[in-house]
C-alpha cells in the first residue's frame, strides 16, 4: 500500500518512532536497520500534516515587477528529446491537446487556444529549487480549478497526476517519463495554475512549453513542465515506481512544501 494513502496514521505514530530512531542513531547501527531510511522519510507526513493544519488555504507571496529575476534559471529537462514533442514544437504547438481524464465526469481535450480562452491568472512568485536557489518570475495561465470545474471530478478522485512529454532519465525498459502529482487541496488552490507564459512571453522550451504546472507552495520539481495529460486518480501507487512523481520515485519527498 502506498504510504501516501496513510498520512494520518503515520502522522500520529511518528512521535513515538522519533525517540526510538534517536536511540538507534546513537548506537551507530544505522546500516543494520533496513527500515531506518523509510522511518526517517516518514517525517514528510508530519510536515504535510502540519502545513495543511496551519494553513490549508494560505497564499504564497506575490512580488512586484521589480523583483523579477533577470535570468530565470532553466533546470531539469532543457528540451524533451522525443519525436512527438519535436513534431509539436515544429508547428508551434498547434497540434498540442491537453487531455483531462481519469476519475472525471467530462473528459476534456484542450488546445493552447482553449487554455488561453479560460479565465486567466497572472502571478509574480518565487520559484524555490530543491537545490537551494530561488528565482522570481511572472507566470500566467488558467487556474487548474477552472479546468477541473469543467471536467467535474468524481467523488473518488483524491489526486491529480500530471503526465509530461519529457524523459528526464530514460531507462532501458522505457520508464523515466516525467510525472508529478498533487492533492486536491493544492489542485483547487487559487494560485495553482497551468501556465503558458513566463514574464509576458509564451513559455520557452526550457521552461516547459507549451504549458507547465505552477503549484506555488511547493518546490521546483513539483512544477511539472511539458504537461500533456492531467489524470484524476484515487491512488498513486500505479504510476512510475509508486511514489507519486519522478523525483519522489528517486528518494525526494512527495510533499515538497519544505
Amino acid at each position: 500500500m502506498s504510504p501516501i494513502l496513510l498520512p494520518r496514521r503515520k502522522f500520529l505514530g511518528l512521535g513515538a518512532i522519533g525517540l526510538g530512531a534517536a536511540a538507534l542513531a546513537v548506537s551507530g547501527r544505522l546500516a543494520d536497520v533496513p527500515s531506518f531510511e523509510e522511518l526517517i522519510g516518514d517525517a514528510q507526513y508530519l510536515t504535510y500534516g502540519a502545513q495543511r493544519l496551519l494553513g490549508r488555504n494560505a497564499l504564497a507571496r506575490e512580488f512586484s515587477a521589480k523583483d523579477i529575476s533577470p535570468d530565470f534559471k532553466v533546470n531539469g529537462t532543457h528540451r524533451p528529446d522525443t519525436p512527438e514533442y519535436e513534431a509539436l514544437l515544429a508547428e508551434n504547438f498547434a497540434g498540442w491537446r491537453l487531455a483531462v481524464d481519469g476519475l472525471v465526469v467530462n473528459r476534456l481535450s484542450l488546445s493552447l487556444a482553449d487554455l488561453r480562452a479560460l479565465p486567466q491568472r497572472a502571478q509574480i512568485t518565487r520559484h524555490d529549487c530543491v537545490e537551494g536557489w530561488s528565482a522570481i518570475g511572472q507566470w500566467q495561465g488558467a487556474p487548474l480549478a477552472e479546468i477541473l470545474k469543467r471536467a467535474v471530478p468524481l467523488p473518488a478522485a483524491r489526486f491529480v497526476v500530471f503526465h509530461c512529454a519529457d524523459f528526464y532519465e530514460r531507462a532501458d525498459d522505457g520508464t523515466g517519463q516525467y510525472y508529478e502529482s498533487i492533492d486536491l487541496v493544492d489542485a483547487f488552490h487559487p494560485q495553482t495554475i497551468l501556465a503558458h507564459s513566463l514574464n509576458g512571453a509564451p513559455l520557452s522550451v526550457g521552461h516547459g512549453a507549451p504549458a507547465r504546472l505552477r503549484v506555488e507552495r511547493q518546490l521546483g520539481y513539483k512544477q511539472a513542465k511539458y504537461v500533456m495529460r492531467i489524470e484524476l486518480v484515487e491512488r498513486l501507487d500505479g504510476f512510475g515506481r509508486g511514489k507519486g512523481g519522478f523525483w519522489p520515485d528517486r528518494g525526494y519527498e512527495w510533499y515538497a512544501g519544505i
Binding site: L14, L30, E37, L39, Q44, T47, V130, G251
Partner: peptide, 23 residues
C-alpha cells in the same frame, strides 16, 4: 551524512532531525 552526496536522502535526514530538534 548519510553518504558522500545524496540530496534526497540528506533532506529526509535533515527534516527528521529538524522535527525532533524543534520538539
Amino acid at each position: 551524512l548519510p553518504g558522500p552526496r545524496d540530496l534526497g536522502l540528506a533532506r529526509r535526514w535533515h527534516f527528521f532531525f529538524a522535527w525532533l530538534f524543534v520538539c
